[in-house]
Amino acid sequence: MSIPLTSNQVVDRYFLEHRAKALDIAAFLDRFDRAATAEGVATSATTTDVRVGALAAALDLVRDGQPDRARRMLELWSDHSVDPIASAHTKGAIGAVPLNARDRT
């Protein structure tokens, strides 16, 4: 089952929606940096916050020109370990894992 739209129709139908979403990401990073600067802590370029780091890495992936970006972005943010953890200390998930420790157990 293929996509019935032409590439032009894809742009016509979705561009404004995704322009707005891209702008939201920029504004989110600006907001984070304004708060960090006021606090005197690391801004988005150097923060150790796992989620902000994961978002920045995902933006690199968006621009790499390769297919399956959505799948690869989800994989980038996923826990790649295989064994069950000893016990659940929380119910929630945060949406990303540390990029340098994706195989945590």
Partner: peptide
């Protein structure tokens, strides 16, 4: 299946 970062691992298990 689990949420967010836990989904891929949990789905396999």
């Amino acid at each position: 299946t689990p949420h967010l970062e836990d989904k891929m691992k949990g789905t396999r298990i």
